[in-house]
Amino acid sequence: MKTQLIIIVMLLLGAYQQVKAQTGIRAGWNYSKIHDISNGGNSGFHAGIYKKISLLGLIGVEPSIQYSQKGAEVDNMGTSGKERLHYIDVPVLVRLGFIPLINVFAGPQASFLVARKYDGATNVSSINELSQFDMGGVVGVGVNLPLGFNVQGSYDFGFSDLNYNDFESKNRLIKVSIGKNF
């Protein structure tokens, strides 16, 4: 029994030494729409930090936290305007590398609405009318560059209803990012 316990501890320590973690920053451009109510999209940006944890070589987990601008051009009760929603996103991505250069990723994302600005016939800044929590998903592809830089493109899609003027509506956005590992 003692020998088996020692073997298990040694295997776990060996597996732990295989785990590599890198911290990084990422920022980029967003193009967002609100599904089912958008007349057009909104350009914005996102920025945040991440922790890339490599497991078993080309498989990794990447939790992060970032600020992201979302929203759309909307027709609000007969008047059009520009809706800007400000979120704190917390994605947890699983990355699969095909070769050390290219990877694909997917995972869940929790988003918290922290501010809102509607510019139209009336200006609205209250977040109380909208759902303040959005659960969604992220899928994308990334490329690792020299000197610890990386670029990626992703598609974020909300599962939760925003409850926008009693219409079923969900966030959708395309993101292009550049990151740097430290």
Rank of each mutant, 00 (worst) to 15 (best):
M10E: 02
V104N: 11
K2T: 06
I37C: 07
G158I: 02
L130D: 10
L12P: 02
G14A: 09
G120H: 05
P108A: 09
M1A: 10
V104L: 14
L85Q: 06
N144L: 07
K33I: 02
P63G: 08
I37F: 08
N103H: 14
S38M: 07
E168V: 05
K117P: 00
G60I: 00
F105A: 04
K2S: 09
F167A: 12
N171L: 08
K33F: 07
S111V: 03
Y118L: 14
I102C: 02
I178F: 04
N181F: 02
D156L: 06
E62I: 13
K20V: 00
K82F: 04
K82G: 00
M77G: 03
L162M: 14
K33C: 02
I34W: 05
Q18Y: 05
N181K: 15
G153I: 01
H86S: 13
L93A: 02
I49G: 15
T122S: 14
Q22T: 06
G57K: 15
G97M: 05
T122P: 00
P146Q: 06
Y50M: 12
S32I: 08
S38D: 00
S64A: 14
N30L: 08
I8W: 06
I34A: 06
V151Q: 08
M135G: 11
L13K: 02
L130S: 09
G57F: 05
D119L: 13
N76S: 10
G158P: 08
V74E: 00
N76H: 05
W29S: 09
M10I: 05
A47K: 01
S32N: 08
W29D: 02
S43Y: 12
I88Y: 10
L173V: 07
A27G: 15
E168D: 15
H86G: 08
E73G: 02
S32D: 03
S68V: 12
A27Y: 08
W29K: 00
E73A: 11
A47G: 11
T3L: 02
N165K: 11
N103L: 01
I88S: 05
D119W: 09
F105K: 15
T122F: 14
R84E: 04
